[in-house]
Design a protein around this nucleic acid. Structure first.
Lengths: 357, 357
DNA sequence: ACAGGATATTCAATCGTTTTAATACAATCG
DNA sequence: CGATTGTATTAAAACGATTGAATATCCTGT
């Protein structure tokens, strides 16, 4: 007599139990490697695993999560996935999460506040156990995020410093980066250096500028305010490029000589390169240009863009390890003081900078 | 006397039922807008919704999915998220899914076959109701994917044509694109045109080349085989750039004159631009260069890259609508013949092409 | 006055796990 | 020898929703 025909294709834990001759409890304990499995005879484990394999059993994650109160997922909320800045952070997150039990659930806020809130909500609904926010730009989502602290949801923001709101943050050391950028041009022999600062609302902008000023004062370099420009506060990530083009053209029209230019980021730098070309100049012959970030484009443009690299994959990885740490200490959760972690930038030398001619 | 203190913060459907004075069934029916809610008095609905709101009730998706057998998720498996080609396809998918009940779950195979299989598995485990595969490059995942057909899982591949395996596919019309690229250079007056074809293993390569040949034969243009090169079959998406540099340098060294170059894709084109620059030439003055794809970089490089645009967002959107259609017809699932849908490419004119001097 | 349909609500079973407490037996201890 | 401890397994109660069948009431037409 054939075994009773299963009406649905679904193989359940009870099926495995029946077939293997043990109770559902035991099967569950073995297959989910619960603490109690310490007491299960090796032989039993073996047999259960074999039959599970043979039947092609796959646990139902919904039933499992419902009962165990664990979703085994971590929410990743990114501000704009089309910003090349994000992608390698995501890679870092993913690689770090890969060997763990956790699965990342990725949401893209498309740079819109409403979307951000909505997806944040959706992630809560999906019962993620922790949250990583990848924010290249940030308005004042602090409010939405602060609410999470009360729910004891582990949270780290990467790319922006919100440690003042007692939210764990991972960023590059922007101040050091600004310092390095300026230093690089200075060491090549540039003395008349223009700067395109980032949007005022972005904390990165000030920090990078601080670094440049620190270098200038340490080395007795004068940064003429007339050679300093600032990007406007638009939110579009691409606007850095347009801004770079315009502000560089302005600088050129001002007739004030400059042999080097520190751009806020790579997109701005590419804009500068474009502006130089439009006016019959070129980098680095007529003006050295250095960017910030080291987005993938930087290596592919001509000339290859010299830039200050953010260790993006490492940033993603670090952020991930932080939330994992919190998750592990679950109950004893010592309420680890959420603080800022800075990663060092590094200079990537390509072809857009050279000695002044 | 205060109401009984809830021991957990969790508000459940039963709580709403108690508080509103209706049974859990009714509450469920109302809040999930089940068919039966047609019969529920408007007043009742109102009251239930109000108390749910007041209590801050959020349904438990695990319980819900467990019982209803619906995950309300759609898997999106991308080959390599750092390929700029993908990003806008993802945007298209997301935007199309946004107004629906479905949530995309994104996985990145990191260009590795093993990862691909693993994530495919994970998505099945998560009980996604449909699958969209975003494949810029594709080995022969046909096998893994064919298995899905048997499980009646709606599936569409975007970016590669696997319609021969009876798998729904959405791609750009590569043949037409190749035709257009060649036509553009021809109309500018170029007659000595070099071509860097794509890797042999990529079906795109042949199709684009077919289109170029068709144009050539229609217009009596001779494509000298000595001006034709082909990228090697490496899998790294960035390799297009390196390949572009090398093959263009080869072409230049060959002393064979060419005033225009059709590159396989934008990265290859950027490589060509780099090679020209290295040898003291420049686009478009010494040689017009046209790419394919219109990745974000294309607009930001200097010179801006003339290219054949793939309507990426539209491709993502179309793919999504296709799986949604299948999901809607759930039971009557007429087993819609999975076939290929082609979207038209378009010429984007920038600064890397011009009349020959 | 009653069958039968439409409206409005509820009962109770169920989805597939995990987990707590219980059972059964063997070994060890004082 | 009774009590304790440690192994090995299981029974049964959750987890929080959905759903098919059942109940109850109200119309409406004949």
């Amino acid at each position: 007599m054939p075994e009773r025909k299963s009406k649905s294709a679904r193989v359940t834990l009870v099926d495995v139990a029946r077939k293997s001759g043990f109770s559902p409890s035991t099967v569950s304990i073995v297959l989910s490697e619960a603490p109690l499995s310490r007491y299960v005879a090796a032989q039993t484990k073996e047999r259960i695993r074999k039959t599970a394999q043979a039947l092609g059993y796959r646990p139902d994650i919904f039933a499992r999560s419902l009962r165990s109160r664990h979703s085994n997922t971590i929410g990743v909320l990114v501000f704009d996935i089309s910003d090349p800045f994000c992608v390698f952070i995501l890679k870092g997150i993913e690689k770090t999460l890969h060997p763990t039990q956790y699965l990342p659930i990725l949401m893209d806020a498309h740079h819109e506040r409403k979307q951000f809130e909505r997806y944040l909500d959706l992630l809560m609904e999906r019962r993620v156990e922790a949250l990583i926010v990848v924010a290249n730009w940030l308005f004042d989502e602090g409010k939405s995020l602060a609410g999470l602290r009360e729910k004891k949801m582990p949270l780290v923001v990467v790319g922006q410093d919100v440690s003042k709101k007692h939210i764990g943050s991972v960023t590059v050391d922007n101040e050091a980066g600004g310092y390095e950028a300026m230093k690089h041009l200075y060491e090549f022999g540039h003395r008349q250096i223009a700067v395109i600062r980032g949007p005022a609302k972005l904390s990165d902008s000030q920090l990078r500028w601080d670094g440049m000023q620190r270098f200038a004062s340490e080395y007795g370099l004068r940064l003429d305010p007339r050679r300093i420009r600032q990007l406007s506060d638009t939110l579009d990530p691409i606007s850095g490029f347009e801004g770079g083009v315009q502000l560089t053209e302005e600088l050129i029209r001002s007739r004030l000589k400059f042999t080097g230019l520190v751009a806020f980021d790579d997109l701005t730098a590419l804009g500068a390169v474009r502006a130089l070309a439009r006016t019959g100049r070129s980098a680095p012959q007529d003006c050295s240009v250095i960017g910030f970030d080291d987005v993938p484009l930087a290596a592919l443009s001509t000339p290859g863009l010299t830039t200050i690299r953010q260790p993006m994959e490492e940033m993603g990885s670090l952020a991930t390890r932080r939330v994992l740490d919190v998750l592990r200490e679950a109950d004893e959760s010592r309420e680890v003081t959420p603080d800022l972690q800075l990663l060092p930038p590094s200079l990537v030398l390509r072809d857009s900078t050279a000695r002044p001619s």
